[in-house]
Every structure is written in structure tokens, then in C-alpha cells.
Design a protein around this nucleic acid. Sequence first.
DNA 1: CCATTATGGAACCATCGAGTTCCGAAACTC
DNA 2: GAGTTTCGGAACTCGATGGTTCCATAATGG
Lengths: 197, 197
Amino acid sequence: MDDGSGQRRVGRPRDASVDEAILVATADLLVEVGFTGLTVDAVAARAGVGKATIYRRWEGKEQLVLDALTASRLHPEVPDTGSLRSDLLAYYLPLTEADAQAGAIRLMPALAAQAALDEDLAERLRAFVSDRRTPVAEVIERARARGEVDPAMDVELAIDLLTGPIMYRLYFSGSPVDPATVETLVDRVVRAIGPGA
Amino acid sequence: MDDGSGQRRVGRPRDASVDEAILVATADLLVEVGFTGLTVDAVAARAGVGKATIYRRWEGKEQLVLDALTASRLHPEVPDTGSLRSDLLAYYLPLTEADAQAGAIRLMPALAAQAALDEDLAERLRAFVSDRRTPVAEVIERARARGEVDPAMDVELAIDLLTGPIMYRLYFSGSPVDPATVETLVDRVVRAIGPGA
DNA sequence: CCATTATGGAACCATCGAGTTCCGAAACTC
DNA sequence: GAGTTTCGGAACTCGATGGTTCCATAATGG
């Protein structure tokens, strides 16, 4: 096995699939019970792994969660339907599904709460969030090139106008996030960021 | 002291100022260390009170936090400057101050994370959030009466368009929430919710 | 003055969970 | 085969913290 210095090491090599199983179990449990509720014992049980195996590979719970977060970065499809409105709907409508919401509700506030006390985690959380934003940025940039968006509009703020209300409803106000709501939201934001009054 | 049945009870009466001190200490510590980080010992120490005194008055940590949250409900001033834009700025610009942000960053995600696991707390959190929303609802309703807002606009969604992006930046994306950002945000939302195109 | 209840403070108990250690067995190098 | 490192699993230590109990003292009613 490669230990990083190019040397072969003697002994039984580490099973790479074990890393994977641990990270997946960590990510799943994070969504189910949040950061504080996550125990290393539960991760080990879920992954079908000894706790010692986890501690042989990670410094501790923090590092494990950080890695799970980084590893689970998706790069979602970037919709390209030809119009800003339908691109945005293609991206945001899936968020109205119950499963997606239940997971996010447990994961994101727990991470944000921990991030308030841990700059390392805060950094990774920002990267995680940033990853989800880039597809929307692309969509908006393309729309701007087509003349559908005010050239003076700050793209970051445009994304905030879309994502912010959805997150706010899910995490804090408890208002429903259903397809009708998302459609209205998209329509209003399209109007807000459209070319000059 | 009134025990609720109108009877005078013998013995030393409870000191009402102790309730106050405990609730204030709880609220302050919540903002400083979040829900998980809050310890009853710390509350007792901060309030200058014995831990037994706390447990004589509350069932436990959950109930204490719930009460602290309810007790700290503010009813902020409702601005009325005559224009939607300046009403909204009057309400949201104070949120750009560092102190307000630091407190909110520790308090809200921690509460939301806990609320995901505790329906009782979730209920109180929604009430807490709802309290902060009503002033904005008033401002928007008044503007609608003046013809500044599309009669078809859902007021709840309009509030989400304003509050959502600010919360999202503070808690998740880490982008700054400064006066310039808030001004741009308000301008865009005023355009989004204005009377029909 | 006495019974009663509240007070702050300290000692105490129980639980939970992070992290460690040890085990027999498996997988690898030499 | 010998030596080394891994594996899952169980048993363990240890610190943190929610919650209880006890104390001497203070404040009230009778």
C-alpha cells in the first residue's frame, strides 16, 4: 500500500472500502441525528466496523465529520433549458420533496450551530454551501448573457434571493416549501433581477 | 405569595427577581454558547444562584430554555416613515451591526438544530420567529394600502424574500451582511413585490 | 418563638460518550 | 513460515454534565 512516501508497507493493507463505509455511515447519521447527536459508536455500528478502526484513520469525531462533509459534495446537474425561469425551477423544485427536506433540516442547522464554535468546520461548511451555489451562478450568468438579467445585478445576491427564503422556511419559520411556493418565489425573483426598470 | 389558588402560603416567599435573573442568564448564555453548549451550572453561576433553586422552579434544561425564549420575546418598534423602502431599511439595517449578528449566529442555528429533534421546542421557535415577522408584515400591509405593493403578493413570501437572504448569509454562506448589501436587497425586493408589471 | 419554605453553595450520583486497549483472526511482505 | 499490520468487537478509562440531596441561613405567617 502507498503510505505517501512511495514505500510499500508490510502487513495487512487497509481496506479502502472501509473508509467509504465509514464516511457514508457518518453522512447518513449526520442527516438523521445532527452533529451533536452523532456518536462514534453509532457510526461504527452502522458501518459494520470496529471503533478502533475509525480511530486508526481519523483523529476524532470532528475530523471524521469534516471528511464526510467534504466527500459527500455533490456536483448537481446544471439545468440549461433556454430560459431563466425554467432553469431555476428545474434546480429548485426538487427541494420540495419531503426526503430532501427532512435530511437538510437535521443536517444544516446542526452544522451551522457547530460551525459557530469551530472555525475549521465553518470553513468546510462555507465550501459545502459554495458548491451548491455554483450551478445557480452558472444559470444566472447564462441568462445575463441572453439579456434576461440586469447587468448590474450582483449574482451572489441573486442566489441569496432564491436560496435564502427556502432555507429560512425550512429551518426557522416552519412554513411549507411546496412547488407552488417555489414557483411564486422564482417568478418574483426573476422580476427582481430582470433588466433595468 | 400567590400559589395560583389564591391562598397565602407560609414560609419564605420566592424571590421573583431570581426568576428574572435566571431567565436573563439563560438567554445571555444561549447567545454565547448555543443550546448544546449551555450548562445548568453555568446558568446558576451567571445568575448568582444555587442550582437547586433552578430545579425548584423548572423541570429541567429544556423547559428553562423554552421559558427564556418566550420571556425574551421583544416587540420591536414598527417603523412608519411613509415609504416602503425606508420602512424596510429602518427595520433591517440594525441587523448589520456586529453584536446583533454574533448573537444571532450562535442562537438561531443551535435552536433550529435542537428543534429538529424536539417538537415542543420547534413550536416555540416558530412562535419566536413569528413575533419578529409581524412588524414587517405591518409595514408591507401599509404599503399595500398605499398602492406600493402588488395586491396579489403573498405577504408571508414577501417577508421571506427579505429575511431569508439575510439569515442565509449569516448562518450558512458566511457572506457579509453590511448596509450596502441590505440596501440592494431591499431595492430588489421592493421591485419584486411592487404593483403588477 | 416556632413551623415552614426559600436561599446560595457544595457534595454527590448516574449517565453518556469520546477515546484507548486488548483480543483472536485475517491479509499482506519477505 | 515469520513478522507485521489490519480487521471487527468487546471491555475499559475518564471527563462532562444533568439532576439530586443536604446544609446553614434567611424570610415569612401565626
